[in-house]
Protein backbone atom coordinates (compact mmCIF):
# COMPACT_ATOMS: atom_id res chain seq x y z
CA UNK A 1 0.00 0.00 0.00
CA UNK A 2 1.05 3.58 -0.52
CA UNK A 3 3.88 2.98 -2.93
CA UNK A 4 3.20 3.39 -6.62
CA UNK A 5 4.52 1.21 -9.43
CA UNK A 6 6.64 3.12 -11.94
CA UNK A 7 7.27 1.77 -15.42
CA UNK A 8 9.28 3.27 -18.25
CA UNK A 9 9.50 2.16 -21.87
CA UNK A 10 11.45 3.30 -24.89
CA UNK A 11 9.17 3.32 -27.89
CA UNK A 12 11.16 2.64 -31.05
CA UNK A 13 10.08 5.00 -33.81
CA UNK A 14 11.03 2.61 -36.59
CA UNK A 15 9.28 -0.49 -35.47
CA UNK A 16 5.67 -1.29 -36.27
CA UNK A 17 6.09 -4.92 -35.40
CA UNK A 18 7.05 -4.56 -31.76
CA UNK A 19 4.87 -1.48 -31.28
CA UNK A 20 2.35 -2.24 -28.57
CA UNK A 21 4.74 -4.06 -26.26
CA UNK A 22 4.68 -1.28 -23.68
CA UNK A 23 0.86 -1.32 -23.66
CA UNK A 24 0.81 -5.10 -23.38
CA UNK A 25 3.25 -5.01 -20.49
CA UNK A 26 1.09 -2.45 -18.67
CA UNK A 27 -1.94 -4.63 -19.35
CA UNK A 28 -0.21 -7.66 -17.77
CA UNK A 29 0.88 -5.58 -14.79
CA UNK A 30 -2.66 -4.32 -14.15
CA UNK A 31 -4.05 -7.84 -14.49
CA UNK A 32 -1.48 -9.03 -11.98
CA UNK A 33 -2.69 -6.55 -9.36
CA UNK A 34 -6.34 -7.41 -9.93
CA UNK A 35 -7.67 -4.34 -11.74
CA UNK A 36 -11.14 -5.00 -13.31
CA UNK A 37 -10.93 -6.08 -16.94
CA UNK A 38 -13.13 -3.26 -18.30
CA UNK A 39 -10.70 -0.73 -16.81
CA UNK A 40 -7.69 -2.61 -18.16
CA UNK A 41 -9.25 -2.54 -21.60
CA UNK A 42 -9.65 1.25 -21.48
CA UNK A 43 -6.04 1.69 -20.37
CA UNK A 44 -4.75 -0.74 -23.00
CA UNK A 45 -6.52 0.90 -25.92
CA UNK A 46 -5.70 4.47 -24.85
CA UNK A 47 -2.05 3.63 -24.37
CA UNK A 48 -1.74 1.61 -27.57
CA UNK A 49 -3.21 4.46 -29.62
CA UNK A 50 -0.65 6.75 -28.04
CA UNK A 51 2.20 4.33 -28.63
CA UNK A 52 1.23 3.96 -32.28
CA UNK A 53 1.03 7.74 -32.71
CA UNK A 54 4.53 8.07 -31.27
CA UNK A 55 5.78 5.59 -33.87
CA UNK A 56 3.81 6.81 -36.88
CA UNK A 57 3.86 10.55 -36.30
CA UNK A 58 6.35 11.27 -33.52
CA UNK A 59 9.41 9.25 -34.54
CA UNK A 60 9.42 7.30 -31.25
CA UNK A 61 9.89 8.43 -27.69
CA UNK A 62 9.40 7.45 -24.09
CA UNK A 63 6.34 6.16 -22.25
CA UNK A 64 6.26 6.70 -18.51
CA UNK A 65 3.56 4.98 -16.50
CA UNK A 66 2.75 5.27 -12.84
CA UNK A 67 0.22 3.01 -11.18
CA UNK A 68 -1.32 4.23 -7.94
CA UNK A 69 -3.87 2.51 -5.75
CA UNK A 70 -6.79 4.33 -7.37
CA UNK A 71 -5.53 5.34 -10.82
CA UNK A 72 -2.92 5.07 -13.55
CA UNK A 73 -1.15 7.94 -15.27
CA UNK A 74 0.47 7.51 -18.68
CA UNK A 75 2.84 10.10 -20.10
CA UNK A 76 3.86 9.66 -23.74
CA UNK A 77 6.62 11.96 -24.85
CA UNK A 78 8.20 12.26 -28.27
CA UNK A 79 10.59 14.73 -29.82
CA UNK A 80 9.09 14.45 -33.28
CA UNK A 81 7.59 16.97 -35.64
CA UNK A 82 4.82 18.15 -33.32
CA UNK A 83 1.22 19.12 -34.12
CA UNK A 84 0.43 22.52 -35.61
CA UNK A 85 -3.32 22.53 -34.93
CA UNK A 86 -4.27 20.37 -31.94
CA UNK A 87 -7.96 21.14 -32.22
CA UNK A 88 -7.98 19.80 -35.76
CA UNK A 89 -5.90 16.74 -34.79
CA UNK A 90 -8.45 15.90 -32.09
CA UNK A 91 -11.31 15.75 -34.61
CA UNK A 92 -12.63 12.33 -35.54
CA UNK A 93 -11.44 11.41 -39.01
CA UNK A 94 -8.60 13.93 -39.24
CA UNK A 95 -5.37 12.24 -40.24
CA UNK A 96 -2.13 13.09 -42.00
CA UNK A 97 -1.14 9.41 -42.30
CA UNK A 98 0.42 8.41 -45.62
CA UNK A 99 -0.86 5.74 -47.96
CA UNK A 100 1.77 3.28 -46.64
CA UNK A 101 0.50 3.76 -43.10
CA UNK A 102 -3.11 3.34 -44.20
CA UNK A 103 -2.23 0.03 -45.79
CA UNK A 104 -1.23 -1.16 -42.33
CA UNK A 105 -4.69 -0.21 -41.05
CA UNK A 106 -3.79 3.03 -39.32
CA UNK A 107 -4.81 6.54 -40.34
CA UNK A 108 -8.55 6.57 -39.63
CA UNK A 109 -8.05 9.69 -37.56
CA UNK A 110 -9.63 8.00 -34.54
CA UNK A 111 -6.59 7.52 -32.29
CA UNK A 112 -6.65 10.80 -30.37
CA UNK A 113 -10.47 10.76 -30.04
CA UNK A 114 -10.23 7.20 -28.65
CA UNK A 115 -7.55 8.24 -26.17
CA UNK A 116 -9.77 11.05 -24.96
CA UNK A 117 -12.83 8.83 -24.82
CA UNK A 118 -11.16 6.06 -22.81
CA UNK A 119 -9.29 8.25 -20.31
CA UNK A 120 -10.69 10.21 -17.39
CA UNK A 121 -8.19 13.01 -17.83
CA UNK A 122 -6.50 13.78 -21.12
CA UNK A 123 -4.01 16.50 -21.96
CA UNK A 124 -1.90 17.08 -25.04
CA UNK A 125 0.91 19.57 -25.46
CA UNK A 126 2.79 20.03 -28.68
CA UNK A 127 5.24 22.36 -30.34
CA UNK A 128 5.98 22.16 -34.03
CA UNK A 129 9.52 20.96 -34.57
CA UNK A 130 9.96 20.03 -30.90
CA UNK A 131 7.58 17.24 -30.10
CA UNK A 132 4.38 16.13 -28.44
CA UNK A 133 3.51 15.04 -24.91
CA UNK A 134 0.25 13.29 -24.12
CA UNK A 135 -0.78 12.76 -20.50
CA UNK A 136 -3.67 10.48 -19.58
CA UNK A 137 -5.14 9.43 -16.26
CA UNK A 138 -7.56 6.57 -15.85
CA UNK A 139 -9.29 6.03 -12.51
CA UNK A 140 -9.77 2.51 -11.23
CA UNK A 141 -13.04 2.78 -9.27
CA UNK A 142 -15.37 3.75 -12.10
CA UNK A 143 -15.85 0.30 -13.68
CA UNK A 144 -15.32 -1.76 -10.53
Amino acid sequence: MGDSIKLRYDVNGEDFVTCGQASEDVKRTLKGIGIPSATIRRVSIAMYEGEINMVIHGGGGVAEVEIFEDRITIVLKDTGKGIADIEKAMQEGYSTATEDIRELGFGAGMGLPNMKKYSDEFAIESKVGQGTTVTMTINFQEDA
Binding site: F16, G20, S37, A38, G107, A108, M110, N114
Partner: peptide, 24 residues
Protein backbone atom coordinates in the same frame (compact mmCIF):
# COMPACT_ATOMS: atom_id res chain seq x y z
CA UNK B 1 -10.36 -2.62 -41.23
CA UNK B 2 -9.20 0.65 -39.73
CA UNK B 3 -7.57 -0.42 -36.49
CA UNK B 4 -8.52 2.68 -34.49
CA UNK B 5 -12.14 2.27 -35.47
CA UNK B 6 -12.01 -1.32 -34.31
CA UNK B 7 -10.51 -0.29 -30.97
CA UNK B 8 -13.17 2.38 -30.56
CA UNK B 9 -16.14 0.20 -31.44
CA UNK B 10 -15.54 -3.55 -31.27
CA UNK B 11 -16.98 -5.07 -28.09
CA UNK B 12 -14.76 -7.07 -25.72
CA UNK B 13 -14.91 -10.86 -26.24
CA UNK B 14 -16.09 -10.43 -29.81
CA UNK B 15 -15.25 -11.95 -33.20
CA UNK B 16 -13.72 -9.46 -35.64
CA UNK B 17 -14.17 -9.74 -39.41
CA UNK B 18 -11.47 -7.97 -41.43
CA UNK B 19 -9.15 -8.06 -44.45
CA UNK B 20 -6.17 -6.73 -42.47
CA UNK B 21 -3.62 -9.44 -41.85
CA UNK B 22 -0.43 -7.85 -40.53
CA UNK B 23 0.92 -8.41 -37.04
CA UNK B 24 -0.68 -5.24 -35.65
Amino acid sequence: DFLSRVMGKAPADSAWITVMSNVN
